[in-house]
Amino acid sequence: METLITILIGVLVTVAVYLLLSRNLIRVILGSAILSHAIHLLIMTMGGLKKGDAPLLGENSNSYTDALPQALILTAIVISFAVTAFLLVLAYRIYKETGTDNLNELRGFNDE
């Protein structure tokens, strides 16, 4: 199961890198969103997938699943959600202001 998820992570990272390298601003943002999904899966896989029962006091089991990666992922998801939302608004403002979403045309430092 871990191997399968790891391959999936690899595929997601590949897709994300392809999107990040494009010139279109929206694609770059989508790329960063997919990249964050890949890392969340990686954190979960690194903690080990389901190894036992839910880590609750009432359960009487010999082994419990590690709950910490899920707590980490939850925090990371919220953060990446906020950043993606901010980026989308920024992309919209840039489009309104400059009339382009092509990163090649947004290059360079002008002294106004």
Binding site: S32, M46, I79, V83, F86, L90
Partner: peptide
């Protein structure tokens, strides 16, 4: 706006690497 998009993209990427390091 134009400068901030670079700043934000590079920081999003470095945050990703941070999580990668934490996961490993």
């Amino acid at each position: 706006l134009v400068e901030s998009i670079k700043y934000i993209s590079i920081n999003v990427l470095s945050s990703w690497f941070f999580l990668l390091g934490i996961a490993y």
